[in-house]
Amino acid sequence: MATAAEHQTARSAPGGTGADAASTAAYESAFDAAVAADERIEPRDWMPDAYRASLVRQMAQHAHSEIIGMQPEANWITRAPSLRRKAILMAKVQDEAGHGLYLYSAAETLGTGRDELLDKLHSGRQKYSSIFNYPTLTWADVGAIGWLVDGAAITNQVPLCRCSYGPYARAMVRICKEESFHQRQGYESLLALSRGTEAQHAMAQDAVNRWWWPSLMMFGPPDDESSHSEQSMTWKIKRHSNDELRQRFVDICVPQAESLGLTLPDPDLSWNEERGHHDFGAIDWTEFWAVLKGNGPCNEQRITQRKSAHDEGAWVREAAAAFAAKHGEAKA
């Protein structure tokens, strides 16, 4: 097996276009060897077109989820019930915008642009996480999102810190640190509600009832229906299957729900001694696909708000560009 340095040399060879079949095959085998050896692929390295396309799709969808994900929580900024909770929520929504920026930058290392990606989001050609198509109806939803939605995101994202593509893996290291902070804050907020007045406890339980199943859907379709999984695992973009991660998440949440003094809305949930895991009920995949196809409760509202923020901000971006051109600054 070749050394890491040799892979590097082969992968970095210039002139990707017009290379003959023999050298393409050499790049390919160097790439495969680098991935097999758990080396990081970097922006200037040769990579298969399909690897590049798959990463752009996944990173863009991830970035879009951060940006659209600001909306359900921002919905409660002006109504947060204490100044401390308001500050925490504002900081969280700000972090999400920052995560979107990291991820767009990471995606840009693959030769795409933020404008292009936003355009694809606005026109529905690229997706974002289905979870953000659910409405935040009470204050407790903010806590439930922190606990369950951020919890599911972390379960999904921690393995991405070891993703084969360097810029994505490094972005995820930073993002996961902040996400786990948000997740603990969400848990703590739900705990305060659960231990609060009867009305607060009921509010927390209702939120968990509404967010539990959509959170399990965040892991994507079952393994036998997941179109990108196998290839992503071979390329080490993905490290675990959807169903493996979903199981891990359920196993983490059950004892947490007990500590919270809240129940999970699944009569089939039970410990399976033989498997060493919790069994759980069937997910409503009809709902999942409906939401993914644009027919969830808030799909239209989310995209409309995102587009209108972008469109109404066009004159501001034009002003900044015109100013920069007049004053010889680099375009912001």
């Binding site: 940006i67 600001m70 909306q71 921002a74 900024i77 002006t78 100044l83 401390r84 308001k86 500050a87 504002m90 900081a91 929504v93 700000q94 915008a97 920052g98 979107g100 920026l101 767009y104 708000q305 923020a309 972008h310 109404e312 901000g313 066009a314 501001v316 971006r317 912001a332």
Partner: peptide
């Protein structure tokens, strides 16, 4: 300023306006 969250003209301003709002909320507290 908190009302701007999710409505800013560019992502960098989502960060900046929230940042200013947070500073002011800290002072208020």
């Amino acid at each position: 300023l908190g009302e701007w969250a999710g409505h800013a003209p560019v992502l960098e301003e989502e960060v900046a306006l929230a940042n200013i709002a947070l500073d002011l909320l800290g002072q208020a507290r």
